[in-house]
């Protein structure tokens, strides 16, 4: 009985720790200029995507680096809401101009960094394009993929040996003119991060 109580308490504490971690991560991402949200189902994720797309005034959603199942669920979810054109970056030859303007890129992040508030892409050219070329971009991430800091990321890189990595910590910006901070230079003008409390790639 006592053992059971202990393990329940530990599970509770671990849950609380994970929640604090997610909250801390989202807070730092928000400080870096991301729109952030924590969801607990793929349906809720699709709702958020639709809301953000609507608030940014874009109707074209371009997905890169998502698992087939997730891409399908997002596509069908958005189809149910009507009025969205959904593309998938699935081949190298795809005309890049198709998703430069008035588009929202949705990509799957490999990890998040709690310490600095950013998301990471590994070796995924489609996610790279979806996070870089469109006017807006949204990263999808599972709770369990949040790393504490750069030291954890260094370990992950050492294990995975990725050929290319991108760490994204906010929308593209510049302060090159009179130190005035302007958001939206060559990369996305706005960006978001959705942390899911469920598995995304089932």
């Amino acid at each position: 009985m006592a053992e059971r109580n202990n393990s329940q308490r530990e599970a509770k504490l671990a849950k609380r720790g994970a929640r604090l971690e997610v909250e801390g991560f989202l807070e730092r991402c928000r400080n870096n200029g991301f729109q952030v949200v924590h969801v607990h189902s793929v349906d809720a994720l699709v709702d958020v995507l639709a809301d953000w797309a609507s608030s940014w005034g874009v109707r074209r959603i371009v997905m890169g680096g998502l698992s087939k199942g997730l891409a399908l669920r997002i596509r069908s979810g958005l189809a149910g809401r009507g009025g969205y054109t959904v593309l998938e970056i699935d081949r190298v030859e795809m005309e890049i101009e198709e998703y430069r303007n008035n588009s929202l890129g949705v990509f799957r992040a490999k990890a998040g960094i709690l310490e600095t508030g950013g998301v990471v892409i590994f070796d995924d050219w489609a996610s790279n394009l979806a996070s870089l070329v469109p006017e807006y971009s949204v990263a999808l991430l599972e709770e369990s993929e949040i790393l504490q800091n750069y030291r954890d990321l260094a370990s992950l890189i050492r294990q995975s040996r990725p050929g290319g990595v991108a760490i994204i910590s906010g929308p593209s910006s510049t302060s090159d003119i009179e130190l005035t901070h302007v958001i939206g230079v060559h990369g996305p003008v706005g960006c978001g991060c959705i942390v899911a409390g469920v598995e995304l790639d089932e």
Binding site: G164, V165, G170, S173
Partner: peptide
């Protein structure tokens, strides 16, 4: 704490 982008480039990078 972080710039918007850190990009790791190499022969197996994430080229278009």
């Amino acid at each position: 704490d972080a710039t918007s982008y850190i990009t790791v480039i190499g022969p197996r990078g994430m080229s278009r």
